[in-house]
Simulated assay, not measured.
Amino acid sequence: MHPENHLVKRIGWLRAAILGANDGIVSTASLIVGVAAASSSTSEVLVAGIAGLVAGAMSMAAGEYVSVSSQSDTEQADLARERAELASQPDFERDELAQIYMQRGLDPKLAYEVADQLMAKDALGAHARDELGMSEVTAARPIQAAITSAATFATGAALPLLTALLLPHSILILGVSVASLFFLALLGAIGAQAGGANIGKATVRVTFWGAIAMALTAGIGAVFGTAV
C-alpha cells in the first residue's frame, strides 16, 4: 500500500483563503496608493487603510456566506428532488444510474449490477455523486468560507497597511507598491504549493493583476486629486 494525499479536499477553504488574502492585499494597497497620490497626509492614508481593512473583511465574510449559502441551497434542493424521485419512481432512477455507468464504459449487465448494489447501500448518495456530481469533499460550507475569507482578507490587508505605517510619506507610494507586489507573489506561490499547482504560473498571474489594480488606482488618485 502507498499513502495518497489528494489535494481536491482543500478546494473549499483554499479558494476562499486565496480570494480573501488576494483581495485584502490588492484592495488595501490600491486604496493606500490612491489616497497617497491625492493627499499629503499620512494620517489620512492610514485612516483610509484601516477603514478599508475593516469594511473589506466584513464584506468578504458576508459575500462569501451569502454566495456559498446559495450554492448550498441549490444542492439541498437537488437532493430533495432526487429523494422524492427515488421514492416515487425507483425503476426509472435505477435505469438512469445504469445508463450513466454504461456511458462510462461498462457493459449493460455489469452497469445494472453496479447500480443495484450501490442503490441497495445508499441510493441517494449514489445518485448525488454520479448523477449530480456532488460529494462530501466539494460540498458547500458557508460558515467555513465566510470565516476563512474574512480572516485572510484582514491578514492580507494588514500587510500593506503595516508597510504604510513604517514608511515616510515621501516614498510611501513606491514602498507600498513594491512591498504589495512581493506579498502577492508570495501569496501566489503559497497558494500554488497548497493546491499542487504550477508555482511560477500562479505567482506571475497574481502579481500581474495586482500591479494593474494598483497602477490604475494611483493614476485615478493623481488625476482627480481625491481619495478613491
Rank of each mutant, 00 (worst) to 15 (best):
L159Q: 00
L161V: 07
L118A: 03
Q144E: 07
R81N: 05
R83T: 05
L165E: 01
Q71V: 14
R129C: 06
W209E: 02
H169I: 05
L86C: 01
A189F: 01
G63T: 12
T148E: 00
E136T: 13
I11W: 15
V114G: 07
A154Q: 02
S70M: 09
Q117M: 10
P160F: 03
E131N: 03
I100L: 11
D130M: 11
F153A: 06
T155F: 15
R15V: 08
R83V: 00
T148W: 02
A202R: 10
F182D: 02
A120N: 14
G133R: 13
N5L: 04
S40Y: 13
V228G: 02
E75C: 14
F208W: 12
M60N: 08
S59V: 13
I50G: 05
L132G: 12
A80S: 09
G191H: 04
A37P: 07
D23T: 01
E4H: 15
V35P: 04
A213T: 07
I32D: 06
E4I: 12
G34I: 06
L110A: 10
M60Y: 02
V66D: 01
P160I: 00
S70G: 14
K9E: 08
T163K: 10
A21T: 09
N198E: 11
A36R: 09
G125S: 04
R104E: 00
S69K: 15
A164R: 11
A57M: 15
S30G: 13
A16T: 04
P90K: 03
E113M: 13
G156I: 04
E96T: 14
K201R: 15
S177L: 11
S88H: 05
V228I: 15
L14V: 04
V54Y: 08
M214Q: 00
D73W: 09
F182R: 13
S170V: 13
N198G: 04
L187W: 10
Q144A: 08
P108R: 12
L14H: 06
G56P: 13
V26G: 00
A51P: 13
S88Y: 06
T163N: 05
V45F: 06
R205M: 05
M60I: 05
I171Y: 05
V35Y: 10
A62R: 10
M60K: 11
A194T: 01
S59P: 15
L106K: 03
S40K: 15
Q193A: 15
H169D: 02
G210H: 05
L53E: 01
V8C: 04
G200N: 06
A185Y: 06
L118H: 07
I25M: 03
T74A: 10
D91H: 05
P168Q: 00
F208Y: 09
A150Q: 01
V114Q: 09
L31A: 02
G12D: 11
D107Y: 12
L97A: 05
A139G: 02
L86I: 08
A62C: 12
F183C: 12
I147Q: 13
E4A: 07
E131Q: 14
F224N: 09
L167V: 15
L118I: 08
Q76I: 00
R15T: 08
R104Y: 14
R15I: 08
S59E: 05
S149K: 07
V35F: 12
V45N: 02
G191P: 04
L161W: 08
A189H: 08
E4D: 10
S30F: 09
R104M: 01
L165T: 13
K9Q: 11
L174S: 15
